[in-house]
């Protein structure tokens, strides 16, 4: 049984301007200890679906319209807030996108690192401090005793993200959800942080969901990839398969829009033309149709089918069979 299993999750926001269909029935699983990526352009609903899983979506304006989220054998969507709270930071933790703003400017690093341990694990201050020192060592921060007494403004962005990772692993969670953990960082530091997260979670046996818009980066680290577009998962498969033999026109477009080493000479980097649809005004049919180079008439009329091939590689598209003639 999967550690995390999201089935048919649907999340809307009720706004004065209308109903925003941010997540439209997504399903994915995460096995214990596994590294799963969720990839998609900005606005595709990656962040809010993660917040829904952790019960962090304010309702209203949010509204979970349907679906189920099962974690470690427990159904989360119907779990009372008080029980959900004891899971958050304890069994599931989250790393956020902006290390510059995710630490509280007026509380010391030590305080922010130990408070969850003291609450969830009921550690004494001395024991928690000791563990904090070893946690900072694990995430590669030198001179941890001094760092614990410092405040966020003393640390660089990369270091702050290391602190956030230390906070995330502090209570020995089963799952970490990292929402674009490197987007705000320098390219050189991005690779360091991703390698650190991969290494740590592997070593500790923690499952990791990495949310990103950079398919190229993530294919190097992830076991499996879910490609998200307009609140749907349009392609899913082993990271290697999705990267080498993308099956959905959107995934192909994403791959063509980032530099890659194995690209044949002469193929240029090309961004996908147009922009994602406004989730407040979704049209019938495939949401990608207006931007799709392979579009046919029925794409605009009918919901695309979900096609499975090569064992566990799945795409939701009318044209997949045409794009990949060898699959059945």
């Amino acid at each position: 049984m999967a550690l995390l299993s999201v089935r048919g999750l649907e999340l809307h926001f009720v706004t004065p301007a209308g109903r925003v269909r941010a997540v439209n029935g997504i399903s994915y699983t995460v096995e214990a200890g596994e590294l799963v990526a969720i990839v998609g352009e900005s606005g595709s609903g990656k962040t809010v679906q993660a917040q829904a899983v952790l019960g962090l979506v304010a309702q209203p304006p949010g509204e979970i319209v349907g679906g189920a989220v099962e974690f470690d054998g427990v159904e989360l969507l119907s779990l009372p807030e008080e029980r959900m709270r004891t899971l958050r930071g304890r069994r599931i933790s989250m790393v956020f996108q902006e290390p510059m703003t995710s630490l509280n400017p007026v509380l010391s690093i030590g305080r922010q690192l130990t408070e969850a341990m003291r609450l969830h694990l009921q550690l004494t201050r001395a024991v928690a401090d000791e563990r904090a020192v070893s946690l900072l060592g694990m995430v590669g921060i030198a001179d941890p005793e001094r760092r614990l007494r410092q405040y966020p403004h003393h640390l660089s962005g990369g270091m702050r993200q290391r602190v956030m990772i230390a906070i995330a692993i502090a209570c020995d969670p089963l799952l970490i959800v990292a929402d674009e953990p490197t987007t705000a960082l320098d390219v050189t530091i991005q690779a360091q942080i991703l390698a650190l997260m991969q290494d740590l979670t592997r070593r500790l046996g923690v499952a990791l969901v990495i949310i990103t818009h950079d398919l190229g980066v993530v294919a190097r680290y992830a076991d499996r990839v879910n490609v998200m577009y307009a609140g749907r998962i349009v392609e899913h498969g082993a990271a290697r398969d999705v990267y080498r033999r993308p099956a959905h026109p959107y995934t192909i477009g994403l791959l063509n829009s980032v530099p890659r080493l194995d690209r044949p000479r002469g193929v240029r980097i090309e961004p996908i033309p147009g922009s994602p649809p406004d989730p407040a005004h979704l049209q019938p049919g495939c949401a990608f149709a207006p931007r799709c180079p392979y579009v046919v008439d029925r794409c605009r009329r009918e919901e695309p089918p979900t096609v499975t091939f090569d064992d566990r590689h799945v795409a939701t598209c009318w044209q997949t069979a045409a794009l990949r003639p060898e699959s059945g």
Partner: peptide
Amino acid sequence: TEYVQVASSKGLLRWQ
């Protein structure tokens, strides 16, 4: 702010 979201995501009590 994001750091308040982070605090919630740690499972802290609401008053904290």
